[in-house]
Simulated scan of single mutants.
Amino acid sequence: MLTLFTNRFQAFQPPQGVPVRITLGAPRFKLPYSLTHSVRELAPRRDYLSQPEPEFSTAYRADLDQLGSERIAARLRQITQAEGDHRLVLLCFEDLADPAQWCHRRIFAAWWKDTTGDTVRELGPMAGQYEQGTLM
């Protein structure tokens, strides 16, 4: 079983699941939890990192399409098996409390839903803005 969520590094809390970094760089600030897992394959590439959202989204989704959901799921399952917890929280830096802000974690969530049919819920304080329904 694989249950995916998204959040930002600063808002993650250990009861939410296993934290997984999906950014090129690691946080340069102290975290109040241990961050031992990273899936660099889900980090956007530098060549489109600073592009506007439409171009970024197109390039990032193309990278995800090339990887494929089966390969991504297999990589994520390695973490669930190592941790004994099916709940993975994919983390990046962006604060989605700003309505003008967007980030690759939510682009991934939309791609995952389109590809697998599984919802990836945002756990941050603005979760209701991105998802309908209740959180775990």
Rank of each mutant, 00 (worst) to 15 (best):
L2G: 01
T3K: 13
L4K: 02
F5H: 12
F5S: 09
A11C: 11
F12N: 03
P14N: 10
P15S: 09
Q16M: 14
P19Y: 06
V20W: 11
I22C: 00
I22K: 01
T23Q: 04
L24V: 11
L24P: 00
G25S: 11
G25N: 11
A26W: 08
P32D: 11
S34Y: 00
R46D: 11
D47G: 08
Y48M: 07
Q51A: 15
Q51I: 00
E53I: 13
P54K: 14
E55K: 13
F56T: 09
S57V: 14
S57F: 01
T58Q: 13
T58W: 00
Y60T: 07
D63L: 10
L64F: 05
L64C: 03
L64R: 03
Q66V: 02
L67H: 10
G68L: 10
S69Q: 10
E70T: 12
A74H: 12
A74D: 09
A74M: 03
R75I: 11
R75F: 02
L76R: 08
I79T: 07
T80S: 15
A82I: 05
G84L: 08
D85K: 04
D85G: 01
D85S: 10
H86P: 13
L88W: 07
L91A: 04
C92Y: 02
C92L: 04
F93E: 06
A97S: 15
A97Q: 15
P99A: 15
F108P: 01
A109N: 05
A109V: 02
A110I: 00
W111I: 03
D114H: 09
T115W: 00
R121E: 12
E122F: 14
G124W: 12
M126Q: 15
Q129G: 07
Y130L: 15
Q132D: 13
G133H: 06
M136D: 14
